[in-house]
C-alpha cells in the first residue's frame, strides 16, 4: 500500500517540488495551501504523470481548518506516513523598530505556530501507527540571523528548537522529526525581490556558485522521508551550496 504524505504549502516553490518528488516516488500526496488554485495545479501535474494527489485550502494559522483537513485525509486513506510542513515565508522585511505587533504575529504564526498545529494533529496518528516522518522547514536565517528579518529568524530558529523537542517526544514511537534548512531558493516569490546584479553578488559568495533550486530542497525532504535516513532524528539538514556551514 502506498504511503500517504501531507504537504503544507504544496502549491508553489519548494512545497510544489516536494509534492512532485514524493509523488514521483509513489507516495500519495495531499496538499494544503492558502492558494487553492496553485495547490490544484500541482495536483493536476501529479495526476498527469499517473500520480495520486488532492488539494485543500487551509490557513495554517487556524487549528479547526487543520483538524478538518487531517480528519479528511484519515477518512480517505486511513493513515498518514509523512508530514512536510513547508508553508511559510519571511513576509515582512523591515527594521525591528518599524515592525507592528500584528506583523510580528503573522510571521511567527505562519512559520512556527502552523508547524506546531499540524504536528499536534498528525503526531497521534503516527504514534498509533508506530511509524511516521515529520519534516519541518527552517532557513539558514534561523541560525545566522538576518537584518530586516527579525521575526522570520526567530520563527525559523523556533522551528529548529521545536523539532528537536518533538523528536525526543516521538522517538519512543518510531516517529522521526527532522528539519530542512534551505538557503535562498529560486522560487518566484524570492526572485521577485532580486535583481540580476544582486543574484550575481549572492552567487559569488556561495561556494557552489549557484542559487538553490526547489528540486535541490525536494531531494533533501525526500531523503528525510526515506528508509535511508532511518537513524536520523532531531537533525537540521542545511541545503545552501555551502553558503552557511553552522
Amino acid at each position: 500500500m502506498s504511503e500517504v504524505a501531507l504537504i503544507t504549502g504544496g502549491g508553489n516553490g519548494i512545497g510544489r517540488a516536494v509534492a512532485l518528488k514524493l509523488a514521483a516516488e509513489g507516495v500519495v500526496v495531499e496538499i494544503v495551501d492558502w492558494d487553492e488554485a496553485a495547490a490544484e495545479k500541482t495536483c493536476d501535474e501529479i495526476r498527469s504523470t499517473g500520480g495520486q494527489a488532492s488539494a485543500a485550502r487551509v490557513d495554517v494559522r487556524r487549528a479547526p481548518e487543520i483538524k478538518a483537513a487531517i480528519a479528511r485525509i484519515l477518512e480517505r486513506h486511513g493513515r498518514l506516513d509523512i508530514l512536510a510542513n513547508i508553508a511559510g515565508g519571511s513576509i515582512h522585511r523591515k527594521p525591528l523598530v518599524e515592525l507592528t505587533w500584528a506583523e510580528w504575529k503573522e510571521v511567527l504564526d505562519i512559520n512556527l505556530k502552523g508547524t506546531f498545529l499540524f504536528c499536534r494533529e498528525a503526531a497521534p496518528i503516527m504514534m498509533r501507527q508506530k511509524r511516521g516522518r515529520i519534516v519541518n522547514t527552517a532557513s539558514n536565517y534561523g541560525v545566522t540571523g538576518s537584518a530586516l528579518r527579525t521575526p522570520y529568524s526567530a520563527a525559523k530558529a523556533g522551528v529548529i528548537g521545536f523539532s528537536k523537542s518533538l523528536a525526543l517526544e516521538l522517538a519512543p514511537y518510531g516517529v522521526l522529526v527532522n528539519v530542512v534548512a534551505p538557503g535562498p531558493t529560486d522560487t518566484p516569490r524570492v526572485m521577485a525581490n532580486w535583481t540580476e546584479e544582486s543574484r550575481r553578488q549572492r552567487e559569488a559568495d556561495i561556494p557552489l556558485r549557484r542559487t538553490g533550486r526547489p528540486e535541490d530542497m525536494a531531494e533533501a525532504f525526500y531523503f528525510l522521508c526515506s528508509p535511508a535516513s532511518a537513524c536520523m532524528t532531531g537533525q537540521t539538514l542545511h541545503v545552501n551550496g555551502g553558503w552557511v556551514t553552522p
Binding site: 561556494p207 533533501a220 525526500y222 541545503v239
Partner: peptide, 9 residues
C-alpha cells in the same frame, strides 16, 4: 546527485 547542493555540512 540528489545532494549536489549540500556542502560544508
Amino acid at each position: 546527485d540528489a545532494a549536489s547542493y549540500i556542502t560544508g555540512q
